[in-house]
Each structure stands twice: as C-alpha cells, then as structure tokens.
Design a protein around this nucleic acid. Structure first.
Lengths: 202, 202
DNA sequence: TAGCTTGCTAAGCGCTTGCTTAGCTTCGGA
DNA sequence: TCCGAAGCTAAGCAAGCGCTTAGCAAGCTA
C-alpha cells in the first residue's frame, strides 16, 4: 500500500499525514490486530514520532473508527447501488457477489479490519458501524426475498441464505493475500457462479 | 460454559484447575481477542491469583496453543471421519458440512479462537496448527474432486469450491451467538442444502 | 513584521503488562 | 512422623503501554 491508495480510499481525509497514519494503521491492524498494535508502531511506520498521531486523531481507537466507518460505508454503497441498478434479482445477486467478493480480495487488509476488528471499537462508534452492517444485510435479504417471490430462487430460508452469501464474501478477507489466486475479479466471478447454484438457480 | 464442558472438550488435561483456566481463556479470547486479554483476566475468571496460571502453563501463548491445537484436531478428526465413512461424494459433503457448521455454531467461542486468533501464536506453534489446517482443506478438496470426477458435482474450480465450503462453516463462528437461530444442527442441515446447490447437484 | 495557526518532536508521566520470586499449605507415601 | 511434591498466594519487577506536555519551526494574515 502506498500514498496513492490512501487518497483513493479516503479522498476527504486531510492533511496527507493523516492519510499516511491511517495507511500505516491498516497494515498494522490487519496483521497484528488492534490490541496487538501500538501507537508507536503506527506513527513510526508513517515516518513520524509517536506524539504526531495525536495531532490528527484524539486516540488510537479514533484511527480504527475512521478506517472502519469508511470501509463499512463503501461496502454498503456497493451493495445498495447494485440493488438500485439491477431490477432482476438474478442479475442483481450476480453483481452484488462479484463486487463484494472482489472488494474483499483487492482490499483484503481494510476488509480484515472492517470485518474482524469492530469489537475493539468504543460502544458509541460500534453502534455507528453496526447500523451500516444491518443496512447491508437487510439489502441483501430483500433481493433474495424478491428472487424467491419471483420464482427465480429456491432456498431453505431467506435469512440463512442471505447470511451465507455475505459469509462467502466476508471470509475472503480472512485468507486472501497479495499473492493469492485467482485475482480479485476472477474470484468474484467464480463465487457469483457458486452463489447462483446455492440459491437454486438453474 | 461450565466445568462439564471443560472435561468434554479437553478430557486429557489435568488437573481440573488447568481446564478451568482454559475455559476462562476461551471466554476471554473469544470476546476480547488474545492481545486484548490479560493473564489477570484469565486467572481471576478462573477464581485464582494471577501467578496460578504459571503453575499450569509456561506462558499466556501456551494457553492459546492448548486451546487452538485441540480445536484444530477436533475439526480435522470430524472432516476425516466423514471422508472415511461415506464413499459417496454427495453424502460425504452433506455430512461434512452439517457437522462442520454445527460444530462452529455449538462451539462458537472455541471456533472463534481456532479460526481468528491463530496469528497470535508463536511461529513454532503456528506451524503445528497450520499443518492441521492444510490437512483439513486437502481432505475437503479431495472429496469435491472425486464428486466432479464421478459427474455428481459441477463447479468452476475445485480449489475455489473447497474454499467456499469451508468459508461457510468458518464464518459461522464470527456471527453465531448463544441466542442465534436456528439451532446448530438445523443450521448445519440448511447449509448442507445450500452447499449441494453450490456444487451443482440437481 | 508581529501574531496566530498548523504540524511536528523530545521527553516523560502514570499505569498496566507478562511473568518471577519466595513462601505457605495440603496431602500421599515411606 | 517426617518428607517432598503439587498447587496455590502476596508481592513485586522490568518493560512497554496510551497519551500529555512544553516547545520549536514554518507559513499565512493583517
């Protein structure tokens, strides 16, 4: 990860030093976890003294929150725009899965923090991302439900099916690395095919 | 979790105090993670002084390793005995999925540590559980491969399909709680049905 | 050019961490 | 009846933790 990815991920964050700190935190949190990372780790990796972090963030947890909220927002925006752009449930599920899976592979470090470090957030911050997560899950459930009503999908239970679809995407962040195969887009396509089968499309 | 579950999970561990420590560690690691848990947390929850932990384990990491290795062994044993007992790939995948998913739901705290805290292990300990994980993945891949050869399964890629099947099980540990529905066995059955669809069984 | 703001560092404070030490009690055998 | 092993506690050590303080340099504004 370099500074370009920082501006791509967080265009609104200023100054550049704040983005460099977030980028360093992403690397550290993704490998050692929130509690396994020190503020000195983050600041040093960003090329600053430990105290510099507190010029841009009020606490270590605030850095985690900034990363987590932005990641959750991106994921929700992705799922929602698929739901709005594709009226056909089958095409919609394909697009959702492809993009969701590819994002978890391409941005596997950010995704790891989004999916696995949210319990380290202070209660108030946690509630913010929990709401974004509920919205995401709800959107997926609605699409599957619409597909079942239209006779396109056959599933044992809509809730379980929605969880399973999201699980496939989320879990990619756990095992995907920079050297994994296939590439994010191809993995997304393969998973979309698997998901169609899972939902009983023939 | 109580002491009975301790003897069920780790019948070979003695004395009882060592099991109580492991049980307390499971609770703590599952909620706050390895680095978020202190040796005082574990010992106090087990009703002992901080120093008592070091009578039974040489380090905090050794407690994690004991929990992690035992959990990985159980999971592998489960997958292997399904592979040995069911010659038919379809029936084998159904049994594997049902049991693997139900285990991750019923033992969600242990499973969370098994699946998400392994990077906190010292390198030497990590290598031991990594080998168990490779064996598990390999067993699942072989069954799917046999099913494809027999014309029972249709998948875009055997490796990806095996990963997807395991992902569905593993990810249950992330979201399942004591109050989740459906119960572990029913969830296992529903997931098995989804997996059959995913593998192109009609 | 004076005065304020922004972004940073060196130093360090108070606390918590994993783990150790010394010593106590209990108990099964010789 | 003595002895050593097993299991535990009270006390505390050195290191590392999140975060604060005081102060400096650069740049903008009036």
């Amino acid at each position: 990860m370099n500074t370009d990815i920082g501006t791509e991920l967080w265009p609104d964050v200023t100054p550049d030093a704040a983005r460099r700190l977030m980028l360093a935190a992403v690397d550290a949190f993704a490998t050692r976890g929130f509690h396994g990372t020190t503020t000195r780790d983050i600041a040093t990796a960003a090329g600053m003294s430990p105290a510099a972090l507190y010029v841009h963030f009020p606490s270590k947890a605030a850095v985690l929150f900034a990363i987590s909220r932005s990641g959750h927002s991106q994921a929700l925006r992705m799922i929602r725009s698929a739901a709005e752009a594709e009226p056909d449930p089958v095409r919609c599920v394909v697009r959702m899965t492809t993009e969701f899976v590819a994002w978890h592979a391409r941005r596997h470090k950010v995704a790891r923090i989004v999916q696995y470090e949210l319990h380290a957030l202070p209660p108030q911050d946690f509630e913010v991302v929990a709401e974004l997560r509920r919205a995401t899950e709800h959107t997926v459930r609605d699409v599957i439900s619409a597909g079942v009503d239209a006779g396109a999908f056959t599933v044992p239970d809509v809730r379980t099916a929605a969880r399973a679809v999201l699980s496939l995407g989320v879990d990619v962040a756990r095992w995907y690395t920079d050297t994994s195969k296939p590439d994010p887009e191809e993995l997304g396509r393969q998973y979309a095919e698997l998901v169609l089968g899972m939902l009983g499309v023939r």
